[in-house]
Amino acid sequence: MKINLNQKVKVKVTSVGKSHFIHRHKDLFGDSSYAPKFQFLQEDEEGYSVWQLWDLIGHFGEALQLLTLHPPIETEIELIE
């Protein structure tokens, strides 16, 4: 099976991941007046959010280390066709 990095996936972002998401935005843009408005993740009724795979890796890659006790996303990822 092949997966393209542009493929959309559904994941459940944990509370640790949500905190990481907020801090990453602050680290990238600080208090700059040119910073894009922060928008939190849109989740469906089951708590899943949709990402392109490359964007998910870009946001959470450093936090997706093996043996983490507090993962930023749940381990099950659903591929969207």
Rank of each mutant, 00 (worst) to 15 (best):
V9K: 01
G61M: 04
S19E: 13
S32M: 07
W51Y: 14
R24F: 07
V16P: 00
E62W: 04
F40M: 13
P72L: 07
F60L: 00
F38I: 14
K12V: 06
P36C: 11
L66P: 05
A35F: 07
Q42C: 05
K37E: 13
F21P: 01
H23G: 06
H23N: 15
S19W: 02
I77H: 01
L56P: 02
L28E: 15
H25L: 14
P72S: 08
G58W: 08
K2R: 10
N6V: 00
W54Y: 07
H25K: 14
L67N: 14
F29K: 04
L66A: 10
I22A: 12
D44P: 07
E45R: 10
K2A: 08
E45T: 10
K37W: 02
G30R: 03
F21T: 03
H25C: 14
F38H: 11
A63F: 09
K8V: 01
H23W: 10
P36K: 09
T14A: 03
W54P: 00
A35K: 13
K10N: 06
L69I: 10
V11N: 01
E74F: 07
G58C: 11
L53S: 00
K8N: 09
F21A: 03
G30M: 04
H59C: 06
M1W: 05
L67C: 11
I22G: 09
D55P: 00
H25A: 15
L41H: 08
E45I: 12
V9S: 01
V13D: 01
L69M: 14
L28S: 15
G61C: 02
Y34W: 08
S15N: 15
L5R: 08
G30K: 05
L28I: 14
L79Y: 05
W51R: 02
G47S: 08
N4H: 03
L67K: 13
D27H: 11
N4L: 04
Y48W: 07
G17P: 00
V50E: 15
I57S: 01
A35S: 12
E43W: 00
Q7F: 00
S15G: 13
W54E: 03
S32F: 06
K37F: 05
K8M: 06
D27M: 12
T68K: 08
D27E: 15
P71S: 13
L66S: 08
S49Y: 07
W51C: 00
M1S: 13
F38K: 14
E81I: 05
L56K: 02
L69Y: 11
V9H: 01
N6S: 08
L64G: 04
H25Q: 13
V50K: 15
L56Q: 02
E81S: 13
R24C: 04
V16M: 12
F40P: 10
G17L: 02
A35L: 06
H23R: 14
K37Q: 13
F29S: 04
I57Q: 02
L41R: 05
D44T: 09
I77K: 01
Q42H: 10
M1I: 11
G58V: 03
E81K: 13
L5Q: 09
K18W: 05
L56N: 02
Q7M: 06
G58H: 12
K12N: 01
Q7N: 10
H59M: 09
E46S: 11
F40D: 15
L66T: 09
S32Y: 08
K10Q: 12
E62M: 07
G17S: 03
L79Q: 03
G47H: 07
V11H: 02
M1T: 12
E81G: 12
W51F: 15
A63W: 06
S32P: 05
E45A: 14
Y48E: 08
Q39G: 06
G61S: 04
